[in-house]
Nucleic acid binder design. Structure first.
Length: 247
DNA sequence: GCGACAG
DNA sequence: ATCTTGTCGC
């Protein structure tokens, strides 16, 4: 586990954060097919908070895309860098997520984020932001439609309908299990929407949410719990480990 | 002006 | 996101 501070120059106000988005959005790459689903590595990232103690924990879990086996994982903890503001989620989550990705022992491949990419008020959600900062292909998978609209996909797993911002398609509502509420998929960086949907279907053989996010969710919650766990008394620590001498 | 609003 | 155990159902 690594520890993170809020990066120097990180936006302090909503106005600054929106200006950063308007600047960085121009660097999103949308004309690459991206990694083929079922090959190489796929990495899930997620974050858990303790607002009371001002602690945030992030996890990155790398899966073998063909077998969905976990091949590597890492965590990072830090201080909360921004309040939750719809449309500015990246400024709250990214510093710790970047630290967790940096701590991985292998290349992450495609990164699957909790939330949105292009489906965003300024077309620059968390997944796109992470992609631009790291250069990695990214997609967003959200559990709610945010401010967007959609028609219910047909019942079978794999059915999809457009996720709309007015008349503009910003993503897909994708049914990942028969008759279960869809997830909301959007492109982050360096891939396409059909490819993003194919990745999500590959990652959901059994549950509604991708295996990547399920693993990352479990791991970041555990990391948060450990980071906020009460410290053992010095005497108890000395008793538990006689090789430790307290100054 | 009011309400809604990824995690 | 988070508060939170057992429980009803396939």
């Amino acid at each position: 586990m690594t520890t993170v501070r809020v990066p120097a120059g990180w936006p302090a106000t909503e106005e600054e954060a929106r200006a950063v988005q308007d600047e960085l959005r121009r660097r999103v790459v949308l004309d690459e097919p991206g990694p083929a689903p079922g090959t190489g590595h796929v990495t899930g990232v997620d974050v858990a908070y303790d607002d009371e103690r001002d602690v945030v924990a992030a996890a990155a879990v790398v899966l073998d895309a063909a077998t969905l086996d976990v091949v590597a994982e890492s965590t990072a903890v830090g201080r909360i860098s921004f309040p939750y503001v719809p449309g500015l989620l990246a400024f709250r989550e990214l510093p710790t997520v970047l630290a967790a990705l940096d701590a991985l022992p292998c290349p992450p491949g495609l990164v699957v984020c909790d939330g949105y990419g292009l489906a965003h008020p300024r077309r620059f959600g968390l997944a796109s932001h992470l992609g631009v900062l790291t250069g990695l292909p990214t997609i967003g998978v959200a559990k709610n439609p945010f401010t967007f609209t959609y028609d219910a996909p047909a019942t079978p797993r794999g059915s999809a309908t457009p996720l709309l911002s007015g008349a503009e398609q910003v993503g897909s509502a994708l049914r990942t299990q028969d008759g279960v509420k869809p997830v909301f998929v959007s492109v982050g960086h360096r891939t396409t929407l059909p490819t993003a949907r194919a990745h999500v279907l590959t990652l959901t053989p059994k549950y509604r949410l991708p295996e990547t996010t399920r693993h990352a969710d479990t791991l970041c919650r555990r990391a948060l719990k450990e980071a906020t766990a009460p410290r053992p008394e010095p005497a108890a620590r000395a008793a538990a480990d006689p090789t430790v001498r307290e100054p």
